[in-house]
């Protein structure tokens, strides 16, 4: 056992509370922005925490069709997400844990989706199965876009370790900035789809037939639901964190900043994305199901552009 670095302890001390507070704050800010723009007061900022507390105290009503998969999924997915939150470089100062290989991270996200789909099919509910089928459809569309965006970044850094990719190395000019910008846009658009947020799916409707993620967790209640809700908020925070990191790399000026300012910027960036998403959700409408591929195509275009530049980098001058 090597000796603990005091810096390492500080990192954990900031990191662990932010794992609980940040997801609540992101979701709260998003909802609050939407509410204020619609002339409502809206729920408190930390509503997610109150919800979690309430759900923890409740009993669970389970379907008579389920097997062990249903409840384990909630716990398993959250544990994988916590693992990802330790592995992915979504905050500047985050303590590192083991490998953060790009493909590993992508496939852990895929594993989370796999179990979510199974849990939806487990309850024998036609609504949940609809949701699962849609989630699978969206995922096949969005996966190439997400993968290409990350792969372009990896080619830019010549390493597939995300912690190396997101290191603040000296920026090599416009090309690198463009790669970061396009990849950031690609990841942002893809994460809207992955999280089933607005133009793809409206999480606030109450029509099970049209929804994606909310339909899949229809049968969950009590503590299982609490785990799923928190997991979704955490996933959102991690993805937004990655997007923020991408956009921070676009500007060479940011790279030169001190660590403290970078930490502050990465927190503010996540919250900024949450607020702008809130504004966007008020202004936009949910797309018809058949129009969704048109939207996701933009994510893939961003990924393709990023990889186009990444491929040519160094060969042309």
């Amino acid at each position: 056992m090597k000796e603990l670095d005091p810096n390492e302890i500080y990192r954990w001390l900031i990191f662990l509370p932010s794992l609980l507070i940040l997801p609540a704050l992101v979701l709260g800010l998003l909802r609050k922005t939407k509410a204020r723009l619609q002339n409502r007061i809206g729920a408190p900022l930390f509503q997610l925490l109150f919800d979690l507390k309430k759900l923890s105290g409740k009993g669970e009503t389970l379907s008579d069709a389920i097997s062990w998969i249903f409840r384990s999924t909630a716990a398993l997915n959250l544990s994988m997400l916590l693992l990802l939150s330790l592995v992915c470089p979504w905050l500047v100062f985050k303590p590192a844990l083991g490998t953060s290989d790009l493909f590993y991270v992508m496939y852990v996200f895929a594993a989370i989706r796999f179990f979510t789909l199974l849990a939806a099919l487990d309850s024998a509910s036609p609504f949940a199965a609809f949701g699962a089928s849609r989630e699978a459809t969206l995922s096949i569309l969005v996966e190439p876009a997400l993968m290409l965006s990350f792969a372009a970044l990896a080619v830019n850094a010549k390493s597939s370790e995300l912690s190396r990719v997101f290191e603040f190395a000296a920026n090599s000019g416009v090309e690198a900035s463009a790669i970061w910008a396009f990849a950031g846009m690609g990841i942002l658009l893809s994460s809207l789809v992955e999280l089933s947020r607005m133009p793809i799916d409206d999480p606030t409707t109450h029509l099970e037939l049209t929804m994606v993620h909310e339909a899949m967790i229809l049968e969950a209640s009590g503590r299982t639901l609490a785990l799923l809700e928190y997991g979704q908020a955490l996933r959102m925070t991690i993805l937004f964190g990655l997007v923020t990191q991408c956009f921070m790399h676009v500007f060479p000026a940011v790279i030169a900043l001190s660590l403290g300012l970078k930490v502050l910027l990465s927190f503010l960036g996540i919250l900024f994305i949450a607020i702008s998403l809130g504004i966007f959700e008020v202004l936009s409408v949910k797309l018809r199901w058949r129009r969704n591929p048109d939207f996701i195509a933009y994510a893939l275009t961003m990924g393709l552009l990023a990889s186009l530049i990444a491929v040519g980098k160094g060969l042309l001058s």
Binding site: T61, A124, S125, E219, G222
Partner: peptide
């Protein structure tokens, strides 16, 4: 947690 079973 307390559990009870019901239909889907």
């Amino acid at each position: 947690s307390k559990r009870k079973t019901y239909i889907t």
